[in-house]
């Protein structure tokens, strides 16, 4: 049984077809990459999966439930979390609070008990604090818990965004260009980090990446799209030698 399943998904913006008849399946525990030249529709596919856009045609299933056209917060609740291409941290909240926002969706106490700090809420709040802190420990950011996110170096901001997504307890994590703007060493660390969370958080990861080193190094399966259509799929070795992939990239591989 596949965890995520896109069935002939089409997305049009006016006259422009951004995603054309895209189908794929992700199995639980898988680490899969989505690559393609700029403007090929990768982020649009992520936006379709996470509900920022509704598909024009086709269906998206997650855990055997039809999630096409559902709102982003409902989809997150169902178990899909994501990060963004341009890091979107909450600047007015500190590092710990950024993660705690990810816990909010499981809060059971109503606003009244929150305002009057009734025991039920206080217990939940303590648990939330503790879990958020543990999550920061797990990603080696605990020492920065009370810092402002903008004060963090770039690589750590990326990590924080991932930690924040993990706080929603996702089954599927979508990473949109996690290595963007990183130097080779940082990218190396990131690869290890991704493999680490894949194992430790019982995740399935779907990622978009431009840095081929990252993709080829860790992803057993790669999907290549161009102009919104899938042009190749398979293990890194096959992808690297696929003539259509080479044509699509025209020799441009890194940071195209």
């Amino acid at each position: 049984m596949s965890l995520l399943s896109l069935k002939s998904v089409i997305k049009r913006f006016g006259g422009l077809t951004a995603v054309n008849n895209f189908s794929t399946d992700l199995q639980p525990g898988e680490l899969c990459a989505l690559i393609g030249p700029n403007g090929s529709g990768k982020t649009t596919i992520f936006n379709l999966i996470t509900g920022i856009y509704a598909p024009t045609e086709g269906k998206i299933f997650f855990d055997d439930r039809d999630i096409s056209g559902k709102k982003p917060n409902e989809i997150t609740r169902a178990g899909i979390a994501r990060t963004f291409q341009n890091i979107r941290l909450f600047k007015g909240l500190n590092v710990l609070e950024n993660v705690m926002v990810g816990h909010h969706l499981r809060l059971k106490s109503d606003p009244f008990s929150a305002v009057f700090q009734l025991p039920g809420y206080m217990a939940e709040d303590r648990k939330m604090h503790q879990e958020a802190y543990e999550l920061l420990q797990a990603v080696n950011l605990a020492h920065l818990a009370d810092k402002e996110p903008t004060a963090l170096p770039y690589g750590q901001q990326r990590k924080l965004e991932i930690a924040r997504a993990l706080a929603t307890h996702p089954k599927l994590l979508l990473l949109d260009e996690p290595a963007a703007g990183m130097n080779p060493q940082e990218a190396e660390e990131l690869m290890e980090f991704i493999l680490h969370i894949l194992k430790n958080f019982e995740l399935t990861i779907f990622l978009i990446e431009h840095q081929m080193r990252v993709v080829m190094g860790i992803c057993p399966r790669i999907i290549v799209i161009d102009h919104g259509e899938q042009i190749a799929e398979g293990v890194p070795e096959i992808i690297q030698n696929d003539p259509r992939v080479i044509e699509a990239y025209l020799g441009v591989t890194e940071n195209a």
Binding site: L93, E97, V101, H104, A167
Partner: peptide, 20 residues
């Protein structure tokens, strides 16, 4: 926690919604 969610909305609606 509700207030944190509100501040998250203030800072970035898209990200807040993506966090549920």
């Amino acid at each position: 926690s509700y207030g944190r969610a509100m501040k998250a909305i203030r800072d970035d609606e898209v990200a807040a919604e993506a966090l549920g």
